[in-house]
Design a protein around this nucleic acid. Structure first.
Length: 945
DNA sequence: GCAAGGTC
């Protein structure tokens, strides 16, 4: 009997669920393994199923995917409160794993699909994060699977989604690597604890201290802080720069009417008199003698395969796109099936990469189709656009004027008829006009020599080319052919255009050119001139912006003399470097291992949002806050902002991944190091504070006077930038306020407990609450008070008057409270004293509220209570002519709970409607005054009507 | 409100 066994195979999702025609990873693998027999169905994520054989026995396969990490690490709720948690305690705090994207229901999905399966084959990315996700998947499947003897969990190892690679991986399944997975767990814990501890401490320390420090959070992180450091380091170089005057001399010479630019071997001199001396000497020599002519063939290497970092650099420097935008476009192109997976480190094509397949697809492209064909056949044809008389323009990414790419001429081995520019005009690309052939990039006088490669030796040739195969994903290549119109133009098209050209360029020959260097002498001084002439365009035929710049020199013989018409002396000033470009930053991050191909753009976006402003040319200028922070770390503990913080952690977790150390030991040791640094940082924070003082205004000089201090009777200031708070310049006291609303004086009333002037806090929006608070009590509640956690309270929860339990205060809920809240069972419904003309009762804890009858003129609390339900009776004063009371009466004292006529005129909001509950049976009555003891007595809540 | 890492 052949038992039908069930098997589950999982791949990491790169699924474009709305577009089933395009390949997704799970679907691709399923298609390959099932030989196109898989059937797909929808669940929380797509599931592909088919019948086949597993380990020689019949099996039913079920394949689905996850979406990156299933779980993410965080602190338990107890440690989430910024006010009550000492950041130093976070180093020893427990951590919990929670679902990374709860809305996606990945855990439930896995558990559901695991039922009935006997085996698990994991097809996640073959890196440490992938290994870690394997275990996250196992945690959500194994317990739900059937138990069978022998190995149940298998790991497939592959580096590309090609049929041979996938089938080979299926042939030799292994096991997931626990060490590697644990190294990721260690990294997560270190990143979390270190980042959060420093972030909370810095934020707490500086945010409350300076009025114009407009930052909701002052963050620290092992990746973001070194990223910021790179930007600030350049800023410091610029500000420390001392310009110097320099002089250089330049003899004017020409050959056959062709001016020759010569450079002095001494370059620049920093002494004017000496430069003038040389000027005289060379002038008196009258002639420039050619001493040597050297001609060398040089080559510019074709590009390696394109990886993420390179793509982001080009997108920033040549297209003016932010890394985030570039990734967004690339992801879109990927999920739509136009390019391969865009997050890769590899620049070398893997063995067996199917170049043919891509070239065949590219062959039909209107711009570079012929070029792709020529690469396949070994015959050369330039990309279309050589003669542009139609709609197809040769599209170049937009270059900045200073960029060294995209500057060359535009014709592609043919003559431009001149009727249309070949390049899409762009303000940033002033050289984009026709017929400007420069250097090797020729308009057609010399036929371009092109490598002759057959399709087979093309492949062979590539393997020797170099680049780096990180074993993750192949380099980024086009997958499907697309035109500008199909992609809707814009950034998508520009990025795709680049990716396609880069791919073709990487299969082309090197660019060859001849460099001529002519040496000259005059009066014992040496000069030289350099020129280039094209030999073979190679890959620059399809990447014309890479063409070699420069012009050929006129022919000159050794020993030949040229008359000097004049010797120019040029004065200049040395100048500082410019601000770091985003592209340079990406390079630095890659070099120092800050972030990954998938996260570099995220770190840059975060740093730009918080600490850096983007200048023209995508140069990064740190803000005052950015500079102050880094300078502060440098003063206290430079390690904190150096790229070292990252590499140190990496080194530590390498030990775990390689099985050379226990995870617990490494984490404990590294945490101890950081905890020590943290304590030192806290102890020396005044050094950083001194810098803040110089750059930001202390609270004393900001804010506007609002209410009086109960201690000194002088006006305190309201600081309205977030976090809004009050400050007494005399007592040097900071008093927190609820956030997200407006604060104004409350009739000049003072708190009877401490003498501080009371303010009214109002939230904004419909049904927004207004409540009085004493600035002092709010921060220093009387004994027995609970603190508000409702809207507007923010993390810095305080105690407004509506929660004040003090009998001596007329604003306390004991004096303003009407009845316990029917909604939250913990709060008290109090009269909002300023809600008129639309009088209202609000719960002092939850959002429940009752609008009193609209025809009311005024409302007050009486001293009496309802005999039935013990609610405080309200003195109601109705408008004349609009009173519901009999006999033209306008005043009454009533219980809004028990007086059915009045209750019917009220409207409850944000809670169960009490009107519906009428007649529901009243329970318990006659309980004592006060509240909060309703556990034993649900009493007269509105729901009991 | 906090890190960095996946990925949509």
């Amino acid at each position: 009997m052949i038992q039908v066994r069930t098997e589950m195979i999982l791949g990491e999702a790169k699924v474009h669920r709305n577009d089933p025609e395009k390949p997704s990873l799970a679907l691709s693998i399923a298609t390959i393994l099932s030989q196109n027999q898989a059937r797909s169905r929808k669940s929380y994520l797509d599931v592909h199923e088919w019948d086949g054989k597993f380990q020689g026995r019949k099996a039913h396969f079920r394949m689905t995917s996850v979406i990156g990490h299933v779980l993410s690490l965080d602190f338990p709720p107890k440690f989430q409160n910024w006010e009550t948690t000492d950041p130093a305690s976070l180093f020893d705090a427990p951590t919990v794993k929670t679902e990374a994207t709860p809305k996606a229901h990945v855990c439930k999905h896995l558990q559901q699909e695991a039922r009935g399966c006997s085996y698990l084959v994991l097809w996640l990315d073959c890196d440490r994060e992938g290994e870690n996700i394997c275990f996250e998947v196992m945690d959500n499947t194994l317990r739900w699977m059937a138990r069978v003897p022998g190995q149940q969990v298998f790991r497939a190892r592959f580096s590309a989604i090609s049929a041979p690679e996938i089938t080979a991986a299926m042939e030799k399944l292994g096991e997931p690597n626990r060490w590697e997975a644990e190294s990721v767990d260690a990294r997560q814990e270190l990143d979390l604890k270190v980042g959060v501890a420093f972030t909370r401490f810095q934020t707490w320390y500086f945010q409350g201290k300076y009025g114009n420090l407009d930052a909701s959070v002052i963050s620290y992180g092992p990746c973001q802080t070194p990223t910021l450091f790179f930007c600030v380091q350049r800023h410091q170089l610029i500000t420390a720069f001392q310009p110097e005057d320099y002089w250089t001399i330049r003899p004017q010479v020409a050959k056959a009417g062709h001016r020759i630019d010569v450079e002095w071997s001494r370059g620049r001199l920093f002494d004017r008199d000496v430069a003038q001396l040389f000027q005289r000497i060379v002038t008196e020599a009258h002639i420039l003698r050619c001493t040597e002519v050297s001609v060398k063939e040089e080559r510019r290497q074709r590009p390696n395969g394109l990886n993420t970092v390179e793509l982001l650099k080009i997108a920033s420097s040549a297209m003016g796109m932010s890394p985030q935008q570039a990734m967004r476009c690339a992801e879109g192109l990927y999920t739509s099936g136009y390019i391969s997976y865009p997050r890769t480190e590899s620049t070398a094509y893997p063995t067996g990469f199917d170049f043919q397949e891509v070239l065949v697809e590219m062959r039909g492209h209107p711009i570079w189709g012929d070029y792709a064909s020529s690469l396949m056949s070994g015959a050369f044809a330039p990309p279309k656009g050589g003669h542009d008389a139609g709609d197809h323009l040769l599209i170049m990414p937009v270059a900045s004027a200073k960029s060294d790419i995209f500057q060359s001429g535009t014709s592609q081995g043919g003559n431009d008829a001149g009727d249309h520019p070949l390049m899409v005009p762009s303000a940033a690309n002033p050289t984009a006009n026709s017929g400007t052939s420069q250097g090797v990039h020729d308009a057609g006088d010399h036929p371009l020599i092109v490598p002759v490669l057959s399709a087979t030796n093309l492949t062979a040739n590539l393997h020797t080319q170099g680049g780096h195969d990180a074993g993750d994903h192949p380099p980024i290549t086009p997958v499907a052919s697309a035109t500008e119109a199909e992609l809707g133009g814009g950034d998508d098209w520009r990025l795709y255009d680049y990716i396609a050209r880069h791919f073709l360029g990487s299969l082309s020959g090197d660019c060859l050119f001849r460099r001529t260097i002519i040496s000259f002498a005059a009066g014992g001084e040496r000069f030289s001139a350099s020129g280039v002439a094209p030999v073979r365009a190679g890959f620059t035929a399809v990447m014309p912006w890479k063409a070699v710049q420069g012009e050929p020199l006129p022919p000159l013989q050794e020993g030949e003399s040229l008359p000097i018409t004049e010797v120019e002396i040029k004065q200049g000033k040395t100048s500082p470097p410019d601000y770091l470009t985003e592209s340079e930053l990406i390079g630095l991050m890659e070099k120092h291992g800050i972030g990954t191909d998938a996260s570099i753009s995220v770190h840059i976006a975060k740093v730009c949002e918080r600490y850096v402003s983007i200048q023209s040319g995508r140069r990064l200028m740190p803000t005052e806050l950015g500079v102050t922070l880094v300078r502060g770390y440098q003063l206290i503990d430079p390690d904190l902002c150096l790229p070292l913080v990252r590499s140190h952690v990496e080194k530590q977790i390498d030990l775990i991944a390689k099985g050379q150390a226990e995870r617990e030991a490494v984490v404990a040791h590294t945490l101890d190091q950081f905890a020590r640094k943290f304590r030192y940082f806290v102890a020396k924070i005044d050094r950083m504070d001194a810098l803040f003082e110089a750059s930001f205004s202390p609270l004393a000089s900001s804010g506007k006077p609002l209410s009086k201090c109960g201690k000194c009777a002088r006006y305190m200031k309201l600081i309205s930038v977030r976090p809004s708070r009050m400050y007494c310049p005399i007592c040097e006291e900071v008093l927190n306020l609820p956030q997200g609303g407006t604060v104004k004086l409350y009739k000049g009333l003072a708190c009877p407990l401490d003498g501080y002037e009371i303010v009214l806090f109002s939230l904004t929006g419909p049904d927004a609450k207004t409540y009085p608070l004493c600035p002092f009590c709010y921060n220093n509640p009387p004994a027995g008070a609970q603190q508000v956690a409702g809207p507007g309270a923010g993390a810095k929860a305080g105690m407004p008057c509506t929660l004040c339990p003090h009998m001596g205060c007329q604003h306390s809920f004991l004096r303003k409270g009407v009845t316990p809240c029917p909604e939250c069972d913990a709060g008290t419904v109090v009269l909002d004293p300023v809600s008129g003309p639309k009088w209202r009762l609000d719960c002092n804890l939850c959002s429940f509220m009752i609008y009193l009858p609209e025809t009311l003129h005024a409302v007050k609390l009486s001293k009496d209570r309802c005999q039935e339900c013990e609610s405080v009776l309200l003195k109601l004063d109705f408008k004349k002519g609009a009173s519901p009371l009999p006999d033209g009466q306008t005043e009454t004292t009533a219980c809004v709970v028990c007086d059915e006529k009045i209750a019917a005129l009220c409207t409850a909001k944000h809670g169960r409607s009490y009107a519906k509950r009428r007649g529901g049976g009243r329970r318990g009555r006659g309980r004592g005054r006060g509240r909060g003891r309703r556990a034993t007595d649900p009493l007269m809540s509105f729901r009991d009507f």
